[in-house]
Design a binder for these strands. Structure first.
Length: 807
RNA sequence: GCAGGAGUGGCGGAAUUGGCAGACGCGCAGGCUUCAGGUGCCUGUGGUCGCAAGAUCGUGUGGGUUCAAGUCCCAUCUCCUGCACCA
């Protein structure tokens, strides 16, 4: 009788063995592989089974790479600054520094249950002054390069979080964090000129082995478009209005013009008769929240009373104001071609503005137009000298023609906006800038960094647009590092993204107080080969990190310009009916009980077995029994086989190599759920053989152990030891399948008649067509009627005999 | 509205990319072990007809290509995700 599998004792034993003798060591000869997890914000709620999934995937991948002969960099750290940490501290009535430290401890404890090969010597914490020194250093560098600048303008403001937000943090007009409706607030802000990198951020996506979905999201977010800026002189005035259009080919069809209510000329275009209505419209628009503005699909607008002159045909074009034109995109003014744009069409219909078709659809002019014809395909009509041209061609050429004639210029536009970088909150990196009345904005000298976040007792947000730091006079008042005059510190802090935009660079050199990361370490270990995490950061963290890396590349701090070579997004683990796990829903499943009852190895495997790693999966506790049973059966098979000590049969050897082949293939294609089912399948087959043979040969069992080691490391180590080895199972190399050993002499081939399987025959694997068909026909002889039309043999796959139907 | 993804047993899911649909697991049913519960082991498990052998239908829906379609093509419905007045 073999000893039952005692997960508790075995897992404890190996946990302490690994602590003494780590399995992932850098001997300086092995090639590196950097496998990174998105580091967590250490929340007070602890880990749930959803967190586990990503960490298990990355650990399995890391251990696999280890067995493939790599030194694996697999670090972990804490994204501990930011709103959630601060809000949590406020709720608990404690200081965020204290609650964060406690939460980190709690998280680390729970994380240890996963038994990942994290190298804790590399640990980083964004709130550690030795870390944020470099977060601030990057900001100073950006300031010196002119990429960080101050600006006052109406920004997105979350009234609940009491802070300004970046565009990326506003989702459907609501705060990404708390869901509150975002309003506008006029505030002095620090901005990062991410738009300067728009083109590179867009182009370099091609270099990345990332999910298409994420690339697409970033492409859309950057939102590049080609078009022209065209100048429309205002009638009777010495001013002109510049519009941006992607369809300069339709210029002859412009029957009106619309300005955003926030356009600088908007109010001044009113004439005495329209002044009241125009002012009211501008005022009303300024009062509308983002959400209202988004939801009101019904067009509103007001005629200013002024006209602009179409520079091409000198047509008098009425100027309107409407909030469907956005002030901060393009020039904040558009020419309107109702015949060829849906929105302009709706507006023209509502306000009874003429519609002029300038592109013939299917060679014809449309009578009684009911919707805009928006495709750039067809011959130009009513377009003066452009008549007869192909619209698609003209669309490309028109910007240059307009530029040549001095009527405007060809331009490129992006949806991407500069990054609103300051937050009016306490728990973040202080922005290292000093406001000097004489010298203006002066960065804190690099040798004085880090600029410490002052320790205070009261840090709650003021809600006024001022940071809580503004109230700390002894901190705010300082001297200008340039001229020595009395000066004041910047009191805003950085957003949570500041630290997470570069943390992955710091792991490999986390104690360096001279550089962000040394050249040697960077060359040796960076960049990241595989990055694993949820898809929710597609246009936030992942875009910001790329921007930061490119900047650091430009100033020579690193010599690569993309941080993450390969990206994998794991799906979310949800509760029943796909509902997101959350404390308030009460559907959070903690891994703690499962680890206690089933063991770490079982839970690791079940996390993968729940479904394809890239898809969301509903958690069902009961499923873990299947994995647990499998592990117990394998355990028993291994122990019984050890005792029986049987010689390998060709059948066992064949299965051994097929196992290697199948598992490796599935692993390489990241089909981790089928890797687990593969283990189960082969275990079932081996048990069947062992029933007859008394056991399985040692080499096959040991091969199984090595393959399973990344998934169930504790059991693999224990059995490896039981099999008489005094080294770790991870000192092995990943086995390779010998395809010649996998082959069958005889194969099973289904025989179909008219596509329906009527028999299955066994034939020699190397049987020729004649031989196979003869055997096939013999097997279904009683069902053949002599009217054979066609005979098909796909080698090793199938036989299909086609006969006339009806008999 | 636009873009992307997905629809397969009671459930999670598999299918070497055009070649026996439902691997693997959960659940369920019957049996063995047990004083009993649990565990463990064995058998069965898409629908319909049949004691059975077997037949027949079957991958959201409708059509098509093919000797052969979950897989390819056309149309259509539903769900999820992202973007959304970006001129």
């Amino acid at each position: 009788m073999s000893a039952p599998y005692n997960h508790k004792a075995i897992e404890q034993k190996w946990r302490s063995n690994w602590a003494k003798n780590p399995v992932n060591v850098n001997d300086g000869k092995k090639p590196k592989y950097y496998c990174l997890d998105m580091f967590p914000y250490p929340s007070g709620n602890g880990l749930h089974v959803g967190h586990w999934r990503g960490y298990v995937i990355s650990d399995v991948w890391s251990r696999y790479k280890m067995l493939k002969g790599h030194y694996v960099i697999h670090p972990m750290g804490w994204d501990a600054f930011g709103l959630p940490a601060e809000n949590y501290a406020i709720k608990m009535g404690t200081h965020p520094a204290k609650s964060t430290a406690e939460n980190v401890e709690k998280f680390k404890e729970q994380l240890s249950d996963i038994a990942a090969i994290y190298d804790w010597d590399m640990e980083v914490n964004t709130t550690d002054p030795a870390f944020y020194k470099w977060t601030q250093w990057i900001f100073v560098k950006m300031f010196k390069e002119g990429l960080a600048y101050e600006k006052e303008f109406p920004i997105n403001w979350c009234p609940s979080c009491k802070t300004g937000l970046a565009n990326e943090e506003v989702v459907n007009g609501c705060c990404e964090r708390c869901g509150a409706e975002v309003t506008k607030k006029n505030l002095r802000q620090w901005m990062l000129k991410i738009t300067k990198y728009a083109e590179r951020l867009l182009n370099d996506l091609d270099k990345l082995d990332w999910p298409e979905k994420v690339k697409k999201m970033q492409t859309d977010w950057i939102g590049k478009s080609y078009g022209a800026e065209v100048d429309f002189p205002v009638e009777g005035r010495d001013e002109k209005i510049t519009v941006y259009t992607t369809r300069p080919d339709t210029l002859y069809g412009a029957t009106f013009m619309v300005l955003a209510p926030e356009h600088p000329l908007a109010a001044s275009l009113a004439v005495p008769e329209t002044k009241e209505a125009v002012d009211k419209y501008i005022y009303d628009a300024s009062m509308k929240s983002n959400v209202d503005r988004l939801q009101d699909k019904e067009k509103t607008g007001v005629f200013t009373g002024s006209y602009a002159i179409n520079p091409l045909n000198q047509a008098k074009t009425p100027i309107w104001l409407s909030d469907y034109v956005l002030a901060d995109y393009g020039t904040g003014a558009i020419m309107c071609v109702p015949a060829h744009d849906d929105r302009d069409f709706a507006f023209a219909k509502k306000f009874d503005i003429p519609i002029i078709q300038v592109i013939a659809k299917d060679g014809k002019e449309i009578e009684n137009m009911t919707e805009a014809y928006t495709e750039a395909s067809g011959i130009m009509i009513h377009s003066g000298e452009w008549d007869g041209m192909e619209s698609a061609v003209l669309k490309k050429e028109a910007p240059h023609m307009i530029e040549k004639r001095g009527l405007g210029k060809a331009t490129v536009n992006y949806k991407l906006r500069d990054w609103v970088f300051s937050r009016q909150r306490y728990w973040g990196e202080p922005i290292p800038i000093i406001h000097c009345p004489k010298c203006g904005n002066v960065p804190v000298p690099e040798e004085e960094l880090p600029l410490m976040l002052p320790d205070v007792t009261s840090y709650e947000p003021t809600g006024t647009g001022e940071s809580p730091l503004a109230a700390i006079e002894e901190w705010v008042n300082c001297r200008c590092p340039v001229c020595g005059a009395d000066a004041k510190r910047e009191t805003n802090t950085m957003p949570q993204w500041a630290g997470s935009s570069w943390y992955f660079l710091r792991y490999v050199d986390n104690h360096n107080d001279k550089e962000l990361v040394s050249k040697e370490k960077a060359d040796q270990y960076l960049p990241v080969d595989m990055y694993i995490g949820g898809v929710e950061h597609a246009v936030l963290h992942l875009l910001y990190s790329r921007f930061y890396t490119k900047f650091l590349y430009d100033i020579g701090a690193v010599d690569f310009d993309e941080p993450f070579h390969k990206l994998f997004n794991q799906g979310m683990i949800t509760g029943k009916n796909g509902i997101k796990m959350s404390k308030s829903k009460g559907n959070v499943v903690s891994p703690d009980d499962l680890v206690r009852d089933y063991g770490c190895d079982s839970l690791r495997m079940y996390e993968l077995f729940v479904g394809p790693p890239e898809l969301d999966a509903e958690w069902d506790d009961r499923g873990i029994d299947g994995v647990s049973r499998f592990l117990k059966r394998f355990w028993k098979l291994a122990l019984d086989s050890r005792e029986a000590d049987v010689k390998a049969t060709t059948e066992m050897v064949k299965l051994r190599h097929r196992l290697i082949y199948d598992i490796t293939q599935r692993l390489e294609s990241f089909s981790l759920n089928t890797v687990i089912s593969g283990f189960m399948e082969y275990n079932n087959k081996l048990m069947e053989i062992a029933k007859k043979a008394g056991g399985i040969d040692a080499e096959t069992i040991e091969t199984f152990l090595i393959l399973m080691a990344p998934f169930a490391p504790h059991m693999a180590e224990e059995l490896w030891e039981i099999y008489g080895h005094n080294t770790s199972v991870f000192e092995n190399r990943w086995p390779e399948a010998d395809e010649s050993a996998m082959k069958d002499d005889e194969i099973e081939v289904p025989v179909q008649i008219n596509g329906k399987t009527r028999a299955v025959i066994r034939i020699p694997a190397d049987a020729g067509k004649e031989e196979a068909l003869a055997a096939g026909k013999e097997a279904v002889a009683d069902k053949l009627d002599g009217s054979i039309v066609k005979e098909i043999y796909v080698p090793k796959k199938i036989i299909n005999i086609v006969q006339k139907p009806g008999k």
